[in-house]
Simulated assay, not measured.
Amino acid sequence: MRQILNTGDGGYEVLKVEEVADPTPQNNELLIDVRAAGINFADILARKGTYQDAPPKPCVMGYEVSGVVEAIGSDIDPDWRGREVIATTRFKGQAEKVVVAPSQVFEKPDSLSFEQAAALPVNYITAWVLIEVMGSLQPYESILIHNAGGGVGLAALEVARHIGATTYGTASPGKHEFLLEKGLDHPIDYRNNDWYEEVMEMTEGRGLELIIDPLGGKEWKRSYKALRSTGRLGMFGVSSASDSSGGFTAKLKLLATVFKMPFFHPVPLIDKNRGVFGVNVGHLWHEQEKARHWVQQLLQGVEDGWLSPHVDETFTFDEVADAHRYIEERRNIGKVVLVP
Rank of each mutant, 00 (worst) to 15 (best):
R2S: 04
L5F: 11
T7V: 14
D9M: 02
V17H: 06
A21S: 14
A21M: 12
D22W: 05
N27P: 05
N27W: 00
N28W: 00
A37G: 01
I39D: 01
D43V: 05
K57D: 00
M61S: 12
G62R: 02
E64N: 01
S66W: 03
G67F: 14
V68S: 06
V69E: 06
S74Q: 13
P78N: 08
V85A: 01
V85H: 03
A87Q: 04
A87F: 11
T88N: 12
F91C: 02
Q94R: 11
Q94W: 01
E96G: 07
E96W: 11
V100Y: 03
A101M: 13
V105M: 00
D110M: 13
I125D: 08
T126S: 12
A127H: 06
W128A: 12
G135W: 08
S136D: 12
L137R: 09
I143A: 07
I143Q: 07
G153E: 10
A155W: 09
E158D: 15
I163S: 09
I163H: 14
I163L: 11
T166M: 15
T167G: 08
G174Q: 10
G174W: 08
L184V: 04
D185H: 12
H186R: 11
P187S: 03
N192C: 03
N193I: 02
E197I: 07
M202T: 03
G205P: 07
R206P: 02
E219T: 14
K221H: 10
K221N: 11
R222D: 00
R228I: 01
R228D: 14
G231M: 08
R232A: 13
F236D: 02
V238F: 10
V238C: 09
S240P: 04
S240I: 02
S242H: 13
S242M: 12
D243M: 03
S244F: 05
G247W: 00
T249V: 07
K253T: 02
L254Q: 13
A256S: 15
F259H: 14
K260V: 04
M261P: 01
M261N: 14
F264E: 01
P268F: 00
R274Y: 03
N280I: 04
H283F: 08
H283N: 15
E287I: 09
H293W: 10
W294Y: 15
Q297N: 15
L299V: 09
G301Q: 05
W306H: 05
W306V: 09
L307H: 01
S308H: 11
P309H: 08
V311P: 06
E313L: 00
F315G: 02
D318A: 12
D318C: 00
V320A: 12
A321R: 09
H324Q: 05
R325A: 09
E328K: 10
E328A: 10
R330H: 09
G334H: 08
L338I: 15
